[in-house]
Design a protein around this nucleic acid. Structure first.
Lengths: 197, 197
DNA sequence: TCAATAACTGTATATAATTACAGTACATGT
DNA sequence: ACATGTACTGTAATTATATACAGTTATTGA
């Protein structure tokens, strides 16, 4: 999204706002009027610049033929986590998913690897919606980082010991000790399954 | 949504699809071309009818000046099914969920009641995305209507017998016989879980 | 049987909109 | 010093689009 000049950003915002308020993109003349340009061509050349910079798309010959590329809005989907990177670092982002009412509490999605949570109804390749936080209540399903791997497990305290508990009888509990590099990335608040078999 | 004639509904669907695919509404000419009308005025008069019936809004003088009236866009979420009604009948619709790329193949969502599919990772209160169809391949998870109740089960053929198979050892298979009022509403193509416990 | 509505074709026109071209002015990096 | 980019004004042509009007055919409820 960067590289945009002030004016280009304003034009981008006008397009976005018009879409939100009206349900369709503005014309050059409408952009010019809103930003008080005296020539429609001012809008036109800003649009060309925005296309060049990859933040919008044009449909030539079509009235109002403007599409936002808007890759940076929406909720990031985290694929594999590169060692040593913050979880939402750009290199970890597989794609972005537009916001919608079903995902209002979700900060990012994690794609599930493996079947360790199968008994909680969470299958491989499911997208787990995660709300960022750095603590967890007993019994919550959380995304935790253990020695630079992010894993989804149920968090259990027993006395003064803490465990990451898979929901699959085939796996055993992982005890969290001071020897490990342990941190909580967030708690699971939803699931999206894109295909069913 | 009712009160719409078949053709009016088609026009409405074309507008919705165009918005989803292109980010802006279609022109009269585009609607006419898609639906194979030879006159743009066919589209125009359907639009007028849709406005009259309150499902779209027009911005006079504006190219592509069509807005969907909110509630009817998006994907219907079906709660309880009233006996004897078509599944997507308006009285069955709990709310509408905005379209998004994760739900591109979904015609409607069903809210899961009960735990009969728990071993397939489908839990109570999950929203199951359904793609409408009236047949099923062996082994697919389908939404089927049996004597005016809609149920989600795995469809199994064995020889010339057909079964609806729960994915929960506590339940037993249901055989589909000619004595029942049986029909297939669609097949499951996705899951959304709004909360996790 | 009449009026109303649906569902179109076909023609026409005013206006909405894109887009090219010709300028001006200023800033920046090479 | 010069090309390149930003940021506009102004004009104009072509095309895209909305929308009115005049018909036709078929269906439906009063």
């Amino acid at each position: 999204m960067l590289n945009l000049t002030n004016q280009q950003f304003k034009v981008f915002e006008v397009i976005k706002a018009h879409l939100l308020n009206n349900g369709f993109p503005p014309t050059r003349a409408e952009i010019a009027e809103i930003l008080d340009f005296k020539s429609v061509n001012a809008a036109e050349s800003h649009i060309k610049a925005l296309v060049k910079k990859g933040v919008i798309e044009k449909v030539p010959g079509s009235s109002r033929g403007i599409r936002l590329i808007d890759q940076l809005s929406g909720i990031p989907l985290i694929g594999k986590i590169a060692a040593g990177t913050p979880i939402t670092a750009i290199e970890n982002v597989e794609k972005h998913i537009p916001n919608n009412p079903l995902t209002q509490n979700v900060d990012f999605f994690l794609r599930v690897q493996g079947d360790s949570m199968i008994e909680a109804g969470i299958l491989e390749d499911d997208l787990v919606g995660i709300k960022s936080c750095n603590y967890a209540e007993n019994g919550e399903i959380i995304a935790a980082r253990l020695d630079n791997e992010v894993t989804l497990k149920r968090f259990k305290k027993e006395g003064n010991r803490a465990f990451l508990k898979p929901e699959n009888a085939a796996y055993s509990n992982i005890e969290v000790t001071g020897n490990q590099d342990f941190s909580i990335e967030g708690r699971a608040v939803g699931i999206v399954r894109e295909s069913i078999s």
